[in-house]
Nucleic acid binder design. Structure first.
Lengths: 238, 238
DNA sequence: TGTACATCAGTGAACGCGCGTTCACTGATGTAC
DNA sequence: TGTACATCAGTGAACGCGCGTTCACTGATGTAC
């Protein structure tokens, strides 16, 4: 399905090798372009121009612009998840608060360093583009990492900090796929708390990156750091 | 600065009248187009075509496409704020929880009914467009309404539900402009809580509207309703 | 190892479409005397 | 009230640019005998 993966897994001939190299080169140039122009303005012709090849040649590697965008989407989802993983790798599993702060900052740092890529993932849908199923799994990786952190808190027996209330049947049913995706038992209340954290993170990054805190918040770093402390408190992470 | 307001406040001649009418007609058609194509695809030529006039004629009313987008931005900010106000108008001021739920649902309902407009306001920035200062005040209206609600809770002496922690000096300083914008005294802790609510709301709507809850959450309405209850609890709204 | 054929990469022109903005011009509306 | 002039709305052509995708073709690489 994904063009990148059409190539044989191991290059046997010079052609196979060149194909893999050029596919990578096209994707790389596409990423470079993304840093300047935004997902909707991605241009197959411009990429070809930058690589010094005919625009039609690109179609030997990606059957359409949409396939290119799909490849970029997947790459960015993976990359951001990698950034979060790297960030948490430096912290022992049981130091929940530190891990949370590291992970959230990992995501934010990646977003700040890759603003158009963030917009591609979490901003407005690209006009005329419908994401295929291939992107679903990669898209889940980052939220799954945060879910895992919260599930770890449950395993370690850490109580939630925020006030509790019962979770209605309807809501339990609505969250069934997510509850299952965690892969281990997690309490309803804690799961719902996790479902508050994810929109908070995306909302905060969206507001910051898209300029909505402009002239309202004077120190983005300090503010983000303090909000993380608050959320940690609510989640009972210490 | 805003073209719409260049017209004399009261139409004195047939020309003035026609100018006001056509300016409105252009904006209306732009809004209609926005429902179909997304902010980046807004086309001056298409608007002119729809109105049966030469594309160059539009420039008598809006000096550039950017001015048109600015007018749309302002209109949408005002409209969404109006939706929130209308929603809370039906609830007595002291019924804080009900007001909160009504306001949040008011915003969500507007967003669901005006998805491209939501993307214009809170999605990726429009490529090549830089929002002028004119948009800053209208952009503050919706968050200000939620701030006012939370300030009301303080006035009514309602305690916060979530666990408390001290607000560092740095963070106080960072939030100074917002604290001042409330127009009445508000405690630091409560202000910070408010600063958690806004990203949560935008994040939740962004995730829902841009398809990130697809196949994860099965009942968007029930889920949103429950999250609102949680946030109300944290804010101490009853 | 050498030849004949098949496969594939890459080219360059073309199709058919879009866009924002400018400009010289016409004809209608408004204004001052 | 009527005329002369100024103002402005709207036109249609043009400028200069962009895009995704297709297609017939060439020449190089790979494969089977």
């Amino acid at each position: 399905m994904i063009p990148v993966m059409d190539a044989p897994s191991a290059p046997r001939t010079a052609r196979d090798f060149a194909r893999i190299e050029l596919t990578r080169a096209i994707l790389t140039k596409a990423r470079e372009q993304l840093a300047e122009v935004g997902p909707g303005e991605l241009s197959v012709r411009q990429i070809a121009r930058d690589l010094g090849m005919a625009s039609s040649a690109v179609y030997r590697y990606f059957p359409s612009r949409d396939h290119l965008i799909t490849a970029l989407l997947i790459q960015c989802y993976e990359e951001s998840a990698g950034a979060v993983e790297t960030a948490e790798a430096g912290v022992p599993r049981e130091q929940l608060r530190k891990r949370w702060v590291a992970m959230a900052n990992g995501l934010r740092d990646w977003a700040l360093a890759n603003q158009q890529e963030y917009a591609l993932l979490y901003g407005s849908p690209v006009p005329g583009y419908a994401a295929p199923e291939d992107t679903v799994l990669p898209a889940m990786r980052v939220p799954q990492l945060f879910l895992a952190l919260i599930a770890d808190a449950e395993e370690l027996g850490v109580p939630l900090g925020a006030p509790s209330m019962s979770v209605p049947r309807k809501e339990k049913a609505a969250l069934a796929p997510i509850a299952e995706s965690v892969g281990r038992p997690i309490g309803d209340e804690r799961l719902v708390r996790a479902m508050l954290v994810w929109p908070f993170l995306i909302g905060q990054l969206t507001l910051e990156l898209f300029g909505h805190l402009h002239k309202g918040v004077l120190d983005y770093d300090a503010h983000f750091a303090h909000l993380l402390d608050r959320v940690a408190l609510d989640l009972g992470l210490t």
